[in-house]
């Protein structure tokens, strides 16, 4: 048993150490895997704001992940083909600059989260799960047949987008960008958890009536959390697209939404470091379990089942149990 603070530092430090060790040992693919872990963690940290802090079980976060991805894909595609992006009333030029792409990705996914949230948050529980799922499916089917941007084939971006002062094609430099963003998101999550907003959101989950009696609107609190959550997952989507230099409708698929939830529960719900532990485990399992048997997904399923049934609180809960249950 170790303290939560130690656990957080160990996991984050460990991720950085793996990437640096891979650099020294000249194992670029390990750096790519570490980058994948950082990006999936970021997406799950975003979801964790809604799911962990707000108690909103969104089964449709792939929608924001995909919107972030397509924001990157479409902007970079227009930059790469030197065609302006026609928005009806006016046209804009594409861009290969990461900061601009991130901003657009976050704004668009926040907008989508606002619209979906306005509808979905009128309900709760299982309705909320299914409605978020259905909205993500809507995006999935739409992009599948959206021939202007490749439909099912998706969009390939031949050269990774740029960041001022860095060469993003060097794996360790791109890892650095993702790692710093992940740390910033974790810091944000930590601050939120303890800020008045986070406390009010937590109370809105446990005792909505009490929140209302002090003059706060649970609905508004949840909506803000959901929008923030969507924006961070959208940013992760843009990075994920840049990692693969490719976007396609599979980023919107319901398997993606499911995997994000899996990451959080594997690691530990509402735990700061939960998503990171979950992402590490998931990527490692995916990578090494596959080497053993063609039917490795059966074992992935069995492991997930065992964790749900017997390791409540996820791996973070096993390593560093909290004295009082979080629910």
């Amino acid at each position: 048993m170790i303290s939560e603070r130690m656990l957080n530092l160990t996991v984050i430090g460990g991720l950085l150490a793996v990437a640096l060790a891979a650099l020294v040992l000249d194992q670029p693919f390990t750096i790519t895997l570490a980058t994948r872990v950082a990006i999936l963690s970021l997406a799950a940290v975003g979801l964790n704001i809604a799911l962990g802090l707000g108690g909103l079980v969104s089964f449709g976060h792939a929608a924001f992940f995909g919107i972030g991805g397509y924001a990157m894909g479409i902007l970079a595609y227009h930059a790469q083909t030197y065609t302006p992006l026609d928005l009806g009333l006016f046209t804009v030029a594409g861009t290969k600059s990461m900061p601009v792409i991130w901003l657009v990705a976050m704004v668009l996914s926040a907008l989508a989260a606002l619209l979906i949230g306005l509808l979905a948050l009128r309900t709760s529980g299982v309705y909320f799960i299914m409605i978020t799922l259905a909205f993500a499916q809507m995006f999935y089917y739409f992009t599948l047949s959206w021939s202007a941007y490749g439909g099912e084939d998706g969009l390939s971006i031949y050269i990774r987008n740029g960041f001022p002062g860095l060469n993003t094609l060097v794996p360790i430099q791109f890892f650095g960008i993702c790692f710093v963003i992940l740390c910033a998101a974790l810091y944000l999550f930590h601050r939120l958890e303890h800020a008045p907003f986070g406390l009010a959101l937590g109370s809105a989950r446990q005792a909505p009536m009490r929140v209302e009696t002090v003059g706060l609107s649970p609905m508004r609190l949840r909506l803000v959390a959901f929008v923030l959550s969507g924006a961070i997952t959208g940013l992760a989507g843009a990075l994920f697209a840049d990692l693969n230099r490719f976007v396609s409708p599979t980023m919107f698929s319901w398997h993606m939404s499911g995997e994000l939830i899996v990451l959080i529960i594997l690691g530990g719900v509402a735990r700061l470091i939960g998503p990171v532990i979950g992402a590490v485990l998931f990527v490692v399992l995916e990578h090494y379990l596959g080497g053993m048997t063609e039917f490795w997904k059966i074992w992935l399923g069995v492991i997930l089942l065992l964790i749900v049934l017997f390791a409540r609180g996820g791996v973070a809960g096993l390593l560093s149990p909290r004295k009082v249950g979080h629910d």
Binding site: Q27, P28, F29, T30, T32, L33, R36, G150, E152, D153, G154, S156, P171, F240, N244, R245, F246, S248, T250, M251
Partner: peptide, 30 residues
């Protein structure tokens, strides 16, 4: 597609393969 891209990175960067093959679907090939 994203898994395919990841595997291709692995084969090229860490296995340093000379030749690649095998992809079934056009979207993965792209």
């Amino acid at each position: 597609p994203d898994i395919a891209v990841q595997l291709s990175d692995k084969l090229i960067q860490s296995e340093r393969v000379d030749v690649m093959t095998g992809i079934i679907w056009s979207n993965l090939a792209m």
